[in-house]
Nucleic acid binder design. Structure first.
Lengths: 339, 339
DNA sequence: CCCGTCGATGTAATCGATTCCACGGAGTCC
DNA sequence: GGACTCCGTGGAATCGATTACATCGACGGG
């Protein structure tokens, strides 16, 4: 592969001049510029990003460590992150943690070793020492969706409390009183918050969330299935189940179907995170929708701000309830999905 | 960030010795090794992958350019690719082409500039000059799922012809005679092949595939919706529609639902690519399942073989039909999904 | 006792870029 | 006409690693 030296030789100038042309530095004569450009063309020269990064100490690359690529929420997030990053002149390297702290650390380390300019993370756990060290050492970092408390890193996320209250009102309005939740890992903020928000909202209606109605999941489908089976095995199963993410809702649907039961007749179901498929499931699933694309874009902007020396602010956007049919029919319901 | 020089100074040895310890070269005394390791620990030193790559001309990185991250088929593929690559000591950088040749080229160029060791591509078009040049120039490359004919690059894909024949037999058995297809872009191999396979299989049953029953999609949901609306507007709409991927099937479901029609009563639907959600859609969707994970792993193995100087072979694995209810009920049907 | 071998180590070149500094020539000002 | 600016250019240092080659000391064989 041709290097800058080959181009210099071909154009009959020094490597310094070639470099100047390539980085359009002003002080290059029109003639030299033309010769260099011709040589670049002739040799099919492309600058070596590795060498450039070594010298400039910049990779123009962002690292994104997401919790699970198989989760449509995170792929949508990844897509918007890459789009915004590209618009700002950055590339993105994605690491999939698969909800495993060890894999998360593997990717964080890998990205740090590659000297990415900044890191976007949705932590799968309470905080690996590795990531905390990196944050303390000054690696530009932004948390997205999930975060780690007590670290001085901007957080871009959505607040689902209001939407959860709407959901509980919806469930209550449909007559559900025994309601359960399939929670995410307690080590994650979203894992805890969604349970807390749900419990608080229930309390406002004078309802309790007993421990047997809190199933411990891990945000992946299999755990949703397992927890739901546990609920169905109870002497007094819940009337409604709220899955803290879309994959666990999928697992719950699997479990319900395996028992030959029906949603919502036998048990109501709602999920956090709305995805296109929820419109077409049997029944369509009532869900809490996050402004995913906007979150991804805001996170990139905050990160790039940090990288380029500007403050980089936290952002919290509201989620909203999208009512469909999985919690039961209620003709008087005001809010209703149009899609 | 500490460099190898700092470690050398801290340990009281030369950088060469540090490098030897880090790459466990045999000829280093136990004592020097211990001192270096202690210094590494004390400084929290991590080797700079950029510098290392520049020197060794290896990045231990694979590039993966997929057609669409929002397509669950490709995210599953990406996941298995990353897993296998990790097992073989490589990282993966994903580029999302979003079914756009220009974006595909952007990512290919970006990956090439980063001097990735090898490239895994599922081309969105008939072949960008950029990619062909790279292949000719000797960049280790493997096509996965889709490929470009006439290029000497291994292809890892699945053959759906038999499964398509099974599907057509299934449709025919259910009494469907007017069947249509939502095709992928003709510039892609999978776009063409699936139409050809479908047409051939229909011919075996004495059925035709008229042009009006071939809708041109682009493998994304919106096109599935548009094409399906076109079909429904025909004076004689098809009785069954075969979507050439899962996203176009989603679009088709949207279109059918928007008209207030039902699958399969008003129109039957089948899709290429099986995904977990198809079990729970209304109705569950009959689909052709590819061995996606195995494809991803085989592709990585072929690519790494090429990179490391071994041959690197093409692989073709069979797809299979998974019958559900979206084409109509048939109690005598032998093959039936259990999930 | 001397020399050859081998193991451990250091010096320095190298990868492909960027960029500081110096230099020569042209133009300007007084 | 001489001094001073600029402008365009090239030489060379530099980034952080790897590695060929040189060196040095210890050791074993003849």
């Amino acid at each position: 592969m041709a290097s800058i030296k080959d181009v210099a030789a071909e154009a009959g100038v020094s490597v310094a001049t070639v470099s100047r042309v390539l980085n359009d530095h002003p002080s290059v004569s029109a003639e030299a510029r033309a010769r260099v450009l011709a040589a670049v063309e002739a040799l099919g020269y492309r600058p070596n990003a590795v060498a450039r990064s070594l010298r400039t100490d910049q990779t123009h690359t962002l690292g994104l460590v997401i919790s699970d690529v198989l989760n449509p929420y995170f792929t949508e997030l990844a897509r918007s992150v890459e789009e915004e990053a590209r618009a700002l002149g950055y590339s993105v390297i994605i690491g999939n943690a698969d909800e495993r702290p060890d894999l998360q650390d593997h990717h964080v380390r890998n990205l740090l070793d590659r000297r990415i300019d900044g890191l976007l993370v949705s932590p799968t756990d309470g905080g690996s020492p590795l990531m905390l060290d990196a944050a303390r050492a000054g690696t530009p970092m932004v948390f997205v969706d999930r975060w780690i408390p007590g670290v001085d890193v901007p957080v871009v996320r959505s607040d689902g409390r209001a939407a959860v209250r709407d959901l509980v009102a919806h469930l209550h309005g449909l007559g559900h009183r025994r309601v359960a939740i399939i929670a995410g890992p307690a080590a994650t903020t979203t894992g805890r918050e969604r349970v807390d928000a749900f419990r608080d909202a229930l309390a406002a209606f004078g309802l309790e969330l007993p421990d047997v109605y809190i199933g411990q999941g891990d945000f992946q489908a299999e755990s949703g299935r397992r927890v739901t089976e546990g609920f169905l095995d109870l002497a007094e199963p819940p009337e409604a189940v709220f899955a803290a993410d879309n994959l666990m809702a999928l697992g719950a649907l699997d479990a319900v179907r395996a028992r030959g039961l029906r949603v919502p007749d036998d048990i109501a179901l709602a999920a956090f995170d709305d995805i296109p498929w929820f419109v077409h499931t049997d029944p369509p699933v009532t869900a809490i929708a996050q402004p995913t694309g906007e979150l991804g874009r805001a996170a990139v902007r905050a990160l790039v701000d940090r990288i380029e020396g500007r403050p980089g602010e936290s952002v919290t956007l509201p989620a909203r309830l999208v009512v469909r049919r999985s919690c039961g029919e209620n003709p008087t319901q005001v809010q209703r999905s149009t899609t």
